[in-house]
């Protein structure tokens, strides 16, 4: 069954017709070609499909596209663009690159969004808080050490600023 929805994706208003069965993750990937959001399990466990819905991270495989009508969705593509206003990588992404906090990159977009959510709520997390903050994102490659290291570095070297270079 088809239904029409209006929502804002990556700052752009959009209207689309979707099958009611369509998951938010499939809608973003298949209908909007936003393939930075990945699908790893479809049971809400792995976190590869993490996006921001109305400013909070959620798992897009556990949400119907038709049910987010009227909402604001931000994917890794939109977030990266917002963060890149001054041209280079966002501090979180830069720290991920510096510490090679990724290998295959499949979990990375979701992981980056979870890290930004964590740092927004706790700018200076302890190691335990970092580990709990990213527990909804499975990584099969890194064993998490490099990710934890990257986040620790951001938490100690970057201060929140109101502009586009902040951690928001």
């Amino acid at each position: 069954m088809q239904t029409t929805i209006q929502l804002i994706v990556n700052n752009t208003p959009c209207e689309a017709t979707v099958d009611t069965r369509t998951l938010l993750v499939d809608f973003l990937r298949d209908q909007l070609d936003l393939t930075g959001t990945h699908l790893g399990c479809a049971t809400g466990n792995c976190g590869a499909c993490t996006v921001m819905l109305d400013g909070l991270t959620v798992k897009a495989c556990t949400i119907l596209a038709a049910d987010v009508a009227g909402s604001t969705v931000t994917t890794i593509e939109g977030w990266t663009q917002d963060a890149r206003q001054s041209g280079d990588l966002h501090p979180i992404q830069a720290a991920f690159v510096k510490h090679h906090a990724l290998q295959c990159g499949f979990c990375t977009p979701g992981m980056v969004l979870s890290v930004q959510q964590l740092l927004k709520e706790k700018p200076h997390p302890t190691e335990a808080e970092i580990r709990h903050g990213i527990a909804g994102n499975l990584c099969r490659c890194t064993g998490y050490a490099s990710i934890v290291k990257a986040v620790q570095e951001i938490a100690t070297t970057t201060s929140l600023s109101p502009g586009g270079r902040g951690l928001g």
């Binding site: 393939t35 690159v97 990724l102 990159g105």
Partner: peptide, 15 residues
């Protein structure tokens, strides 16, 4: 650092 990393952290890896 990995030479693909800057692409992958931005969700630009094409799987």
């Amino acid at each position: 650092s990995g030479i693909l990393d800057t692409k992958l952290v931005a969700g630009k890896g094409q799987y």
